[in-house]
Simulated scan of single mutants.
Amino acid sequence: MQQLDDAELLSLFRQEETKERAFTGIVKKYQEKLYWHIRRMVVNHDDADDVLQNVFIKVWNALGNFREDSRLYTWLYKIATNECLTFLEQQKRKSSVSFDEMESGLSNKIKADDGFDANKLEWKLQLAIQKLPEKQRIVFNLRYYEEMPYEEMSKVLDTSEGALKASYHHAAKKIEEYIRNED
């Protein structure tokens, strides 16, 4: 089932007798990529698992109505991104803290990770990413880690390609500055 392309999986999903197998194929094909996309946004493993589960529940409920105006991959990332933003907003409301305090909390979660080493570049990069404004953080993660083309990102985030390029440029500059100042 995993070797099937998206069009084949969608076709199988629309048939009652193969619907569950097709959905399992979609989950197997995309769950790791979506998990890491979500994890980079919410930081904590358990939170990422919860958000990913919510994503796949929404996908199951909505996949029958998927019009294929975009690629399945793009549609899944849009749902995952929106679920992350919803989760982060709920966390912010629950704790009634400002976004700056929430960013600090995400940085603390990174520092609390068992493998954290402040001298390693990958950890500095993660801390720098958490300092970015939300939109720049999302754009940077999609471009840097997922290597998502701006055209696809535009569909996921409902933003023009030019604005996304500017956001990525500003994010990269801020990260570079943060890392340079940490050394």
Rank of each mutant, 00 (worst) to 15 (best):
N82F: 11
Y168L: 08
E146H: 07
E147D: 05
T159W: 01
E152Q: 13
D114G: 11
W36G: 01
K111L: 14
E89D: 12
M102G: 02
S107H: 03
I38C: 01
Q130P: 02
R67H: 12
E89C: 10
L132H: 09
T81K: 06
Y30K: 04
F56K: 00
N119L: 10
F99A: 10
A22L: 01
D158W: 12
N54A: 05
A7T: 08
L9F: 08
S107F: 03
V59L: 02
K120A: 15
K131D: 13
L106D: 01
L142R: 00
Y144Q: 09
N119Q: 15
Y35F: 15
K120M: 14
D183N: 03
N61T: 06
K131R: 14
L142D: 00
C84G: 09
I57V: 14
D47A: 11
L88G: 07
T159E: 04
S107C: 13
D6W: 02
L63I: 14
K29I: 08
E151R: 14
I129M: 15
K19H: 09
Q31F: 01
E103A: 10
G105E: 10
E161K: 15
D113R: 14
E8T: 13
G105H: 12
S167Y: 14
V27R: 01
L63F: 06
D100T: 15
L4V: 00
I110P: 02
V51C: 00
